[in-house]
Amino acid sequence: MWEINVKEVIKEKGKVIEGYYKPENIELHTGTYKVLHDGFKVRMVLAHADDKIVLGGYVRGYVERPCDRCLKISEMYIDGVIEAVYTFQKKQLPRNEELKDLTNEIPLNGDIIDLEERIVEAIVSSAPDVFVCNPDCKGLCPYCGADLNEEPDHVCEHAPKENIDPRFEKLLKIKNKQEG
């Protein structure tokens, strides 16, 4: 389903493709996660112009991922943008020449474009490095691991009684003296 014939796009001057991308899991830069619900909703528009095929669209869906603060499994929403320009002209850069052109053109090899590569690219590039289940998540106690969302008044018995950096001891003495 996620392949398109170049000749078909040229003949029709464009094409709209919609559907659901349904892998069981997706590998992101932070780990491999289960894809939820019906998978990722995908909508792509391909247009042929100036000896190029321009692709634009979106991919949206949810994965199951642990919160980076409290470690509870939560739903993470991913809203990715699909963009690509396929060209019929092959550009060869000399090996020692720096990349000066950032047009991100992909040379066409054959009559088939694999759109799945662009879908996965959009998902991976849109996934956040840090995910929290909600902005107010308090996380875990650094000493005993208690969930501070469930125990907001938690006072840990494992915490050091006085944890003062020796470099700040004099400042603490001054503060205590000023407070009386």
Rank of each mutant, 00 (worst) to 15 (best):
V85Q: 09
D50P: 01
L108E: 08
V59S: 14
D51I: 08
Q92V: 11
P128V: 01
M76A: 00
P152F: 02
L171N: 09
G180P: 00
N134W: 03
E75Y: 00
E12V: 06
G39C: 14
T87E: 13
K100I: 11
T87H: 00
H154T: 04
D79V: 08
T32E: 15
V16W: 07
E18R: 15
E169V: 07
Y86A: 12
E75R: 00
H37I: 03
Y86W: 13
E83F: 01
C144L: 04
N104Q: 14
P107D: 05
C156P: 06
D129Y: 12
Y21E: 11
T32F: 10
V59P: 13
N25Q: 13
C70W: 13
P66E: 02
V35S: 01
K100E: 13
L99R: 00
I73S: 02
K175S: 06
G145K: 12
A47I: 09
K41C: 05
S74A: 15
L140E: 01
K175M: 10
P107W: 06
L171K: 12
V63P: 01
W2S: 13
D165A: 11
V120K: 14
D68S: 10
P166D: 02
K41H: 12
I113F: 03
H48N: 03
N149R: 09
T32G: 10
D136M: 07
P23E: 13
D165W: 10
N104C: 01
A127D: 02
R43I: 04
I73P: 06
M44K: 02
N163I: 08
R167E: 07
I26C: 12
G80M: 15
Y58E: 14
A47P: 03
H37S: 12
G39D: 14
C137L: 07
H48I: 01
A127R: 02
D50Y: 04
N176Q: 14
K52W: 01
C137K: 02
M76C: 12
R60Q: 15
V155R: 04
E64F: 00
N149M: 01
I17S: 10
G139H: 05
K170Y: 01
D101I: 08
N163H: 12
K34R: 14
K138H: 00
K22P: 12
K91F: 05
K52T: 08
I10P: 05
H154K: 05
